[in-house]
């Protein structure tokens, strides 16, 4: 059985915990605490260590799903968990202030994970129609990080089907890059 470890990262309120709950086949391990920053993101609780869930894809692909806290003050958890991950679904909420630049900053923070695996961006809360919308994220990536090949999707973290599609796309992306890597090294000068 093949095993994958996938990280869910992104700012507070983007839907990381919800996405893992949508996907997981086991009871999700959560570490929620009362949120002191209701003026920043108005939700009662926030993740302070990790979320953990599991899902089986196909006959033999087991995926371990780890969510990290969104706040920078917990970046020690980012460092711990990204060591064991092969890929990342980065969720960003479209209605947050400066959401596009937030995506760029998070991608920079997890750049090493992109280098050795793969990353997908999922933009949530686009249905509210108050954010910059999907095209703005792709355009920013092309303009500011043209060396990155990162698919960008709109997602609803509550929708298990959508999240499953994103997860399978990420795993296919990781496996494709792993297959192509030896060929790319062979043609490098």
């Amino acid at each position: 059985m093949a095993e994958h470890v996938i990280l869910f990262a992104g700012p507070m309120g983007a839907g990381k915990t919800t996405a893992i709950r949508s996907l997981s086949e086991i009871e999700v391990v959560s570490t929620e605490a009362a949120n002191s920053e209701r003026h920043v993101v108005d939700k009662a609780t926030t993740t302070v260590a990790l979320d953990y869930g599991e899902i089986t894809l196909g006959d033999d692909d087991k995926v371990r799903l780890y969510g990290v806290p969104g706040q920078k003050r917990f970046d020690f958890m980012w460092a711990i968990l990204k060591k064991r991950a092969r890929g990342m679904i980065m969720l960003v909420n479209d209605d947050a202030p400066d959401a596009v630049q937030t995506m760029i900053e998070y991608l920079d923070d997890f750049r090493d994970l992109y280098e050795r695996g793969g990353v997908i961006v999922g933009v949530s809360r686009t249905d509210l129609g108050v954010g910059p919308g999907l095209a703005a994220y792709s355009a920013a990536l092309q303009a500011q990080r043209p060396d990155l090949i990162v698919p960008v999707f709109t997602v609803d973290p509550r929708d298990a089907g959508q999240m499953r599609t994103v997860l399978m796309t990420l795993i296919a992306n990781i496996e494709m890059r792993a297959m192509l890597a030896p060929a790319a090294e062979a043609v490098a000068p």
């Binding site: 959560s30 570490t31 302070v48 260590a49 806290p69 917990f74």
Partner: peptide
């Protein structure tokens, strides 16, 4: 403070 918060939550989990 951040680390203690994580440890507390993990021990509860």
């Amino acid at each position: 403070a951040s680390m203690s918060s994580s440890i507390q939550a993990l021990s509860d989990a």
